[in-house]
Amino acid sequence: MNAPAYNFAYLDEQTKRMIRRAILKAIAIPGYQVPFASREMPMPYGWGTGGVQVTAAILGPQDVLKVIDQGSDDTTNAISIRKFFAKTAGVATTTSTDEATVIQTRHRIPEVALHANQVLVYQVPIPEPLRFLEPRETETRRMHALAEYGLMHVKLYEDIARFGHIATAYAYPVKVNGRYVMDPSPTPKFDNPKMDNCPALQLFGAGREKRIYAIPPYTKVVSLDFEDHPFEPYRFNAPCALCAAENSYLDEIVTDDKGSRMFVCSDTDYCEGRQAAGHHGALSAAPYKDKAQGGANG
């Protein structure tokens, strides 16, 4: 432990207890948004204050933490949150999905299948799926309570009427355990099927909106759709330019000002793992970069 100035994982024990109670309630009622007394965190709203509080509340000294931002382990947000917990909790950190026990994520679910000993913590900006259709909080709560979800289909209807298909590509609404409709945070809808019957526990924290919700392990998660316009995960139709993966979610990267672009896996750990295993894409001429971060700095 190298952080005597802070309580373990930054938050004081009473706060963590309060958050854990909210988490337990959220697990007991899958998909239900539990209000909690969200604290100010040493980072701005929108940078994952909700996810950080959930992570702080569930983290133990033996845990191995991975933080991703849009699938990537090496963006500013991911690195600063990883450092934050390395400093305040002294836990081991990793970039490997498989080794991690707690994964905090912004906008992605890792490509590698999660297992039963893992917890996936989502950073959520706006937890209320009905928000943009019904601005009144009192009304949306009542709609959840009475399971009145017709309005959610109005949004999908509008998509089809306007674009000919369901054009919602992220934050695609799901129904959890046949009861609550939930916003899966702005993950691409490509990731929605991964939530269904997932062995790992999934926790969602919205700091600014002061809500926590959860999907317990092995819970049924169904993406909403119409009979004649079924849900379809979207993926750009190309192999990854670095690891040639055909089944991963791709980022589009603009490489110059003449319109050139490349498509690479958004999940960096998955992509690096495949390259290490000898898969090479069209643009992977650069020598394979060693995994420098993994677990050593804890």
Partner: peptide, 12 residues
């Protein structure tokens, strides 16, 4: 269509 969807119509 909203009322129809509210009573469970699920065919666009």
């Amino acid at each position: 269509g909203e009322r129809l969807m509210a009573v469970g119509w699920n065919h666009y």
